[in-house]
Design a binder for these strands. Structure first.
Lengths: 127, 127
DNA sequence: GTAAGTAGTAAACTAAAGGTTAGTACTTAC
DNA sequence: GTAAGTACTAACCTTTAGTTTACTACTTAC
């Protein structure tokens, strides 16, 4: 069952809203690549991060980082020494996405196979 | 860990792609409301469905239904009797979204509380 | 025959997301 | 002092998502 069956209309609306909030938090083109870059290359500075994530522009990186900071996924660390150094890093809170991303990845992988299978099945038989 | 740590760059890219495919399949403004409407009101005809989902236009409903049919979530049943009757219904495959939607709803609900808590905490102390 | 319903599609629009180019203010290396 | 780097922001443009309004072709009830 897609969403456990809620009993009241309020519960149903709340469940829908919660799912949509979650989708919004990880949705868009670049949030996952940002998380992935920080996860497997560690904390990075702005330009470093831009180079890590192929194709992202400074403008978009900047806005994504701000949203993700608001959502608590990212910490913007400022060292106010001789040259100010700004470093972005994942917070422990970002780890709470584990289940969500795990479920999405698993379902997505299976779905990809299913769709590919369908196309191959429709096209291949006579060959 | 957000995404179990893959060992190769290929695995990492594949995992990211899978997550993005999944997000695409359930993303957008209306796919979840459509699923919810069919889930709790049962199979419905086009205009019926449009009335069930407050605010959706015929054009958008039409395109959402087509995409969801391609993804295998929905079956378009045609009874070619005296008046042709078209009915939309969820397929068993739509149920495979259970884990994904469950994880999203749970995380989303918790996140909503966290964010609300933060704002209240920031604003309320002196009062 | 006309009013209302079914199952949509077409054309034109607005809004939101994202991309491109350029520029700021500052620092460090040569 | 000039070239290159850091950490961005501003202005503008394109693309995509979603909305609005109207329309078709067909059926059923009165």
């Amino acid at each position: 069952m897609p969403l456990e069956k809620p009993h009241t209309a309020q519960e149903c609306t709340a469940a829908l809203g919660a799912v949509q909030d979650a989708l919004y938090a990880v949705g868009g083109k670049w949030k996952l690549p940002v998380i992935a870059a920080l996860r497997d290359r560690g904390p990075q500075r702005f330009n470093e991060l831009q180079r890590s994530i192929k194709g992202i522009s400074a403008r978009v990186l900047s806005t994504e980082l701000k949203q993700m900071e608001l959502n608590g996924f990212i910490h913007r660390k400022i060292d106010t020494g001789a040259p100010v150094v700004v470093t972005y890093e994942l917070t422990p809170y970002a780890d709470t996405l584990g289940n969500v991303l795990g479920a999405l990845r698993e379902w997505g992988a299976q779905h990809r196979n299913k769709i590919r299978g369908k196309i191959t099945a429709e096209v291949s038989p006579p060959f």
